[in-house]
Write a protein that binds this DNA or RNA. Sequence first.
DNA 1: ATACTTAGACCGACCGGTCGGTTTGTTGAT
DNA 2: ATCAACAAACCGACCGGTCGGTCTAAGTAT
Lengths: 200, 200
Amino acid sequence: MTQEERSEETRGRILAAAAESFARQGYDVTSVDAICRLAGVSKGAFYHHFPSKSSAFIALLGAWLDQLDRRFHAVQAQGGSVPQQIASMADDAGSIFQVAGSNWNILLEFWAKAKAEPEVAASMMATLRRYQAMFEALLARGESEGSLQAGDATLGAALLLSVVLGTLLQGLLDPQGRDWGGVLQRELAYVMTCMEGRTT
Amino acid sequence: MTQEERSEETRGRILAAAAESFARQGYDVTSVDAICRLAGVSKGAFYHHFPSKSSAFIALLGAWLDQLDRRFHAVQAQGGSVPQQIASMADDAGSIFQVAGSNWNILLEFWAKAKAEPEVAASMMATLRRYQAMFEALLARGESEGSLQAGDATLGAALLLSVVLGTLLQGLLDPQGRDWGGVLQRELAYVMTCMEGRTT
DNA sequence: ATACTTAGACCGACCGGTCGGTTTGTTGAT
DNA sequence: ATCAACAAACCGACCGGTCGGTCTAAGTAT
């Protein structure tokens, strides 16, 4: 294995260990030593790849948002009517709930840290606003192609975002409570049928 | 001032200081010393009133949930049709967004800590399920009194909860972004008009 | 091919400082 | 006098980050 490959793998192991620890215990409770232990790596290695503990956190946030974007664009690339695309996204998001041991808990950490870490806050705000704009554009397109009469696209986009985030939050807080993937699909289907015929 | 009054006031000051610190910096970052400094009280006083830092956190969570319950019941006690009551709750929840410097940020801390602290997790799950049940009952009542045709009350209740939580989350992450109180009101109004005429 | 050099990857002991919690002492109400 | 209410010094554990040193892959000259 070349040096670069090895280096990249170590970096990846550190990030994976950090993600798991942050998701399970939270950022502050997780010590750098614990991350290194879990990654099977020394502290020196950690600080060779990251200048600080928080920089690893920021890196995770970036990777996470990138992955989200890729999912989003994959759905949009496959085409279809607007209601179909939204249903697709609901399926996609829903399927994530079922992934056992997935690290979506780290989302709570991102959200919680946003109020103290300006960089996290900025990322989160930008992401929220970007998705709001994307949903608005999607609804407007649906209106123009005739598959929707949602009325106020801004309000509709906010509603869709709220439903997704709210359901996600409930799923994180009460994972065993219900089949949240299914709930999200049905909620969005419900809202979409409303938007398919209305004038307000 | 009697001893008991003085004691109660000190306890209150500690709780208020803890709430503010937790909301602003987060639970783990906040030191007991910082709480005491903010409350103008010594460490001895803190550990006289609370056996541990986390017990103060749990006490705050309990107080918070109690306050939420009181708001909820106040709205229900004033009567009115089901759609009116939900609009009332939207107004009530919406007005909270405008309260400057309110400590609703502590909600993020409660949510984040739920994954590591079983007691917090249990409280959160129980609260979510209780409100789900209350919304279900409310929708069922609306159906029986003829003011609603929401269809699946379980789904409808989940939808309402998701909208509220999702909007709340967005408001916490991007407070300056929009008038979230107004957004919540309009979102709920939108959903309610859907529920007023439908058979699915 | 082989010996030598170099630079990045990695190790792990260590440090200054902080934190949750305890202990001991003091005060004021009853 | 007694005891709850508080103050303040104190303790041991731990944490983020540093630093001198080691190892090894990759280049270079021969």
